[in-house]
Design a protein around this nucleic acid. Structure first.
Lengths: 207, 207
DNA sequence: GGGAGAACTTTCAGGTCCGGCAAACTTTCG
DNA sequence: CGAAAGTTTGCCGGACCTGAAAGTTCTCCC
């Protein structure tokens, strides 16, 4: 037996895969951060990660996804959480609650996520990609919410809630990056959701 | 002098340009509607509009833009309207009010807009494009709103309001198309904005 | 251990997207 | 009419992305 009898669930193979994926994403983020999206090719990213450019596409369906997607934050877990929130909790609060775990994981990966958001901010072409990453999630979320509040799936509320909370979350993420992570993401999301719950009233101009 | 002494502001040249642009957009929408986004090339679209494929790119920066962008609904006018709404009107209501004109124009172009939204619905890759079309608008909108409510530009409210109203509007557009335009877009947008103003409370399950 | 087979990577070929360039053409204006 | 300005077009090349086939690396089971 080798010196590592434990850690059986993940073999060498999976560890290498994760490494490669990580190397590609990291290389992509750093290169784009310093040169801009247009001035970085897939070949350069692949070279920096020491793999062929064909391999790049085995991991990411397109260049942008290497910058925006993140395996560690998979939406399936968020949806599971959402389904688990007790049904008497209002939908908006339920969504906020279910986001908690995802937010924690993002804070744990603080460094990388801040870089990611800065890259997105400086390359607006990526912003739609951020939406794309959530579009399938929003669809499922719509169904979950319809179920939860007991309205037909073509009612306007579930789709509106999904779209609006998605927008609010993105807004908080961008704000997080803009402040370089000075305030916690959790706080910023809370602030946004409270404003939503209050019906988006005009804020006080000056105290 | 010719038989058309009036209509001086637009010459033959500009009229032709508008025609070409329109032909390209129309061809793109119809082809994609029947074959799907992947199975339509720029060459085919250009051929259908009787221009070279090189000309296509003189009008649209990429294939998707021919499907999503619309010259008749330029956001500059919306922003102008927004700036004109009296400052005592709360920001959320002001946005709804400023959207009115755009909505009217979309209803006038009902046919084309419904087709467009159906195409987007059936080709989810385009949905992020719809966001992209509004991203610059949202940025300006953020500044306008900050100004209007008298908070610094890095306050969370303006960006949140811009993102959220954008999402709500898109949600209403998709709903409009899903119902094949049975209910007026104006109604659907009102419904969404009222729900926003109420703080997104859970709807009544059944009467 | 050791080999059969699965999984991953690489190379290669090819289609589509998209932008720069300069020549031909069309409209506008003096 | 003729010059100026704008538009269309073909040509070319780089970049993105995909399929197929061949080569390499890991896993599993004996």
């Amino acid at each position: 037996m080798t010196a590592h009898p434990a850690a059986q669930t993940v073999g060498l193979r999976d560890r290498k895969k994760q490494q490669t994926r990580d190397a590609l994403a990291t290389a992509a983020l750093h290169l784009v951060a310093e040169r801009g999206l247009e001035n970085v090719t897939v070949e350069e990213i692949s070279a920096a990660a020491d793999v062929s450019s064909r391999t790049f596409f085995n991991y990411f369906p397109c260049k942008d996804d290497a910058l925006v997607a993140d395996h560690s934050v998979d939406s399936a877990r968020f949806l599971t959480r959402l389904a688990q929130v007790p049904p008497e909790v209002p939908a908006l609060a339920a969504v906020r609650s279910a986001l908690g775990e995802m937010i924690d994981r993002m804070q744990a990966d603080r460094e990388r996520w801040l870089l990611r958001m800065v890259v997105i901010e400086r390359n607006p072409a990526l912003l739609p990609r951020l939406v794309a990453a959530g579009v399938e999630t929003e669809r499922t979320m719509t169904e979950l919410v319809a179920d939860r509040v007991g309205v037909p799936p073509d009612h306007h509320f579930p789709a509106l809630l999904a779209a609006v909370t998605g927008a609010a979350f993105r807004s908080a993420m961008l704000r997080w990056a803009a402040g370089d992570g000075a305030r916690s993401l959790s706080d910023l999301v809370d602030e946004a959701f409270e404003t939503l719950a209050a019906g988006l009233p005009d804020p006080q101009p000056a105290p």
